[in-house]
Amino acid sequence: MNVLTICGSLRKKSYNAALMRALPGLAPEVMRLTVAPRVDTIPHYNHDDQEATGFPASVMAFGDAIRAADGVIIVSPEYNWTIPGTLKNAIDWVSRMEEQPFKDKPVALQSASGALLGGSRMQYHLRQCLISIDALIFGRPEVIVTFAPQKFDAESLELKDQTTRDMVKLQLAGFARFIERVGVK
């Protein structure tokens, strides 16, 4: 099964990007992970632009990648207690597409943050948005990586915390079963 990973952070040393890079090594054998196009190539949503020139190529590519996947994992930081604007903007664009790509798509969430709530406030906001676009949202286990600097290698940014690695493994295995159960393919 093909699972697309979407990262909500753009910075080079992002813990969330590092978490996303760790996923292929923790996924069950049936799951093949590919990385979605970066969300920062997508312009700000403006309905006038959509009407005048249609969907930008970057949005089409993002939408196509989601549509082609059997499932999606969003790995994102929390900005000001909620979803990073750039990630939300990407979701806002594809939500307007015909054959809306998130419809009935299995989606799992992960987040990492430097503090003690691990991005959970963002996750519950994101869950609420995913209701509107009718994704099939995976339940538990949740992956909420708290105190990220202690869990990744300072130099290589490799995920080295065993408890976190085990939790991610459990989620990915559960998500694979979820996709098999609800998947349209």
Partner: peptide, 20 residues
Amino acid sequence: QYHLRQAMVFLNAYTFNTPE
């Protein structure tokens, strides 16, 4: 409803989306 949905995440229910 959005609070109840959050509690249902913990209980690992499958909460139906739309129409709400």
